[in-house]
Amino acid sequence: MLLVVGAASGMVVTDGIVGETTAQDSDECTFPVSATDATGTEVTVDEEPESVVTLNPSAAQTLWEIGAKDKVTGVTKHASNLEGASERTNISTAGQTITHEVVVDLEPDLVLAPLSAVTTEEDVETLRDAGLTVFAYPTAESIDEVRQRTLQTGEFVGECEGATETVEWMDEKLSVVEDAVDEQEKPKVLYTFFGYTSGTNTFIHEILETAGGVNIAAEAGIEGYQQINQEVVVTEDPEWIVLNSDSTEVPDGNGFQETTAVKQNQTVVIDTNRLNRPAPRIVYAVTELAETFHPDAYEEAVKAAQSTPTPTPTESPTETEPTPTETEPTATATQTPAATETPTATQTPENSDGDGAGFGVLAVVGSVVLVNALVLGARRRNDGH
């Protein structure tokens, strides 16, 4: 059975425990607010911004969820799945995700820039040299970092209450998952995309394990986003294979075809906008996977949560479902995956979100033969997307 899962409620956990957040003592924001960003720069916002531009879709999604979307004046083309995004200025062109001139012309009070292979420190410096206030986020490596990023974003844009409510919503849903998977036998799981996978020190690893799975990439010692050897796939023998909506087919090769997951038709496709964006909607990816891996236990946990009196819940986020062209591609026929399995200092992980949000398509520093083989495989599997 190939499961293409839709929206569901769910909750995120770090290392099996629902994470605590370090929100302000009060939900009321105060200005000025200062923090050191990922470039080592002390960034100060003197007063509540009225206009904000985002350089990555995860930042845009966060602003939508915390109630600050009306302040957003510019987004990249890869945030088009968000309701109302078409009413904002598209800062991208057909061949370029970030057009500096467009961002500068918008004269935003604040620019939010999650760093990635797409959004670089050079982009940040260029915009700062043009007189803009830019806050650069580091690449998110855990679900707790998504929480902290959400709260920090709220502080910078004057939506502290909305940010706190969003994190509380995440934690409420994640606690249901924690209850559901507690004491359950955890299936072995592999996340794969064009032959790459997600190991330790990635928030996708945490998503898989929070949902009650055992990430075989981590078990095999893979760190970050790397290719996975088919011999490892055979040895680890995943019971479930997780795919994203940019790559909905299991890779070719006997290594994958001989797995329990393939033999028992246990593959699941998760929307890229939920799985590969380090932003609040990763909760949906967690709950969808928990329901897939542990359907009976998850159903019981949901019923138990519904029968327990709670304060008036925060309204769950809503979204416009993306079409295939609305997601930022991780690898297409024109993009080149790396041939090496271990990134070097000159290799920068790239992903479907451009924000540390999916396993990597690496800057090429390797064998042309292997590269071409991967690209041709990507063409066959994804027909040019």
Rank of each mutant, 00 (worst) to 15 (best):
D252C: 11
A378K: 10
V52F: 07
T120C: 01
A333T: 00
F193P: 12
D237T: 02
D353E: 14
P313H: 00
F193K: 15
T348H: 10
T344V: 15
I222C: 01
E219Q: 02
F359G: 15
L243S: 06
V167R: 04
I228H: 01
F194D: 13
R281L: 02
T292G: 04
N244C: 09
R281Y: 06
N81V: 12
E258V: 13
I17H: 09
N276P: 08
A333H: 00
A290T: 04
P280C: 10
E350I: 15
I66F: 06
D46C: 10
G16Q: 09
V72H: 13
E223D: 14
P309H: 07
S34H: 03
I222V: 03
G212D: 04
V242A: 05
G19H: 12
T235C: 07
T192P: 00
N351E: 08
Y137M: 01
S80M: 15
A220G: 07
T44G: 12
S367G: 13
G212W: 02
A113D: 02
R274E: 14
A85M: 12
K77E: 11
G195N: 03
A220S: 07
T344E: 15
K71H: 10
P108Y: 12
G67R: 08
V18P: 12
V234D: 03
A285H: 05
S9E: 08
A297P: 06
D296W: 10
N372G: 01
T260R: 10
M1S: 15
E326M: 02
V13D: 14
A338N: 12
S198G: 08
D109Y: 14
V232I: 14
L115K: 01
P322A: 01
V167H: 05
P238D: 04
G74R: 11
D15P: 04
G131Y: 03
H385D: 08
V12W: 14
V176H: 04
P337F: 05
L132T: 05
E107K: 14
A357R: 06
G366T: 13
I228V: 00
E42A: 08
G95I: 00
G358C: 04
V232P: 10
T36L: 00
T327S: 09
D70P: 10
V13W: 13
E326T: 00
T133E: 05
P108R: 15
A79V: 07
F135W: 09
T126R: 02
T200G: 07
E183W: 10
V43Y: 01
T325H: 00
